[in-house]
Design a protein around this nucleic acid. Structure first.
Lengths: 111, 111
DNA sequence: AAAATTACTTTGACAGATAGAGTAAATGCG
DNA sequence: CGCATTTACTCTATCTGTCAAAGTAATTTT
């Protein structure tokens, strides 16, 4: 089952954006990729994934286009925009800072 | 201003519980301690802090008692319970795993 | 006595995550 | 062919953590 969902909350946009930045991908593909990379320690829920897509698209961090139909439903591919690339850098910096801050608060006194 | 609050969301219970586990403390004291330890990179909001206390108390991870009035308002001190100590260990383990998982997803391919 | 400081509480609103249900299109199989 | 299965995406309603805003209360400072 892995980790609780609200513990990764707020970082999913960053994760999805990063995966799309590696190569254009569609929803199911990303979902499978997340399970694969984390060795099933974390699975993104479908509803959550598509909510992330909508959010990223509203902010113009990603764009979508329909790919050729190979099998199963119609695949909608996502690509990162240049605005998205800039945001991703900033979000990764924020993640680094988050780790520092929480680690500070979970360690000793350090005055 | 430091980091956005929803990025630390879900970890505050762990942080507060850890601070109380070091020594019995009251609300304002903890709030100040968080600012101090993070060098003002993160400040907990009052409403959030007291919501955390309520949650931790409902789960019987902490207990409260009134201290002597020294100056200003009446201080309500919190102490960790033995159940709380066990939980804290588990929560810290979860934080370690969260870091691993997100880092996995923000790094390269790693199959 | 009024103002400032310390400390705690409550209410309502908002945003991200998700369960659950539904839509749609292609493939597999008898 | 017709039906089940698989792949893929969408929508709605609900839950939970965070927080702004406002309020209560007691002590110290001026």
């Amino acid at each position: 089952m892995g980790i609780r969902s609200d513990i990764i909350r707020g970082h999913l946009d960053t994760v999805i954006l990063h995966l799309i930045s590696e190569k254009d991908q569609y929803g199911y593909e990303i979902s499978k990729e997340i399970s694969r990379r984390t060795h099933d320690r974390f699975q993104i829920k479908e509803a959550t994934l598509y909510a992330v897509f909508q959010r990223l698209r509203r902010k113009e961090l990603i764009e979508s286009y329909y790919g050729d139909i190979t099998h199963g439903g119609r695949r909608k591919y996502y690509r990162i925009t240049s605005l998205g690339k800039a945001y991703l850098k900033e979000m990764i910096r924020e993640w680094t800072e988050t780790k520092e801050i929480i680690d500070l608060l979970l360690e000793g006194d350090s005055s």
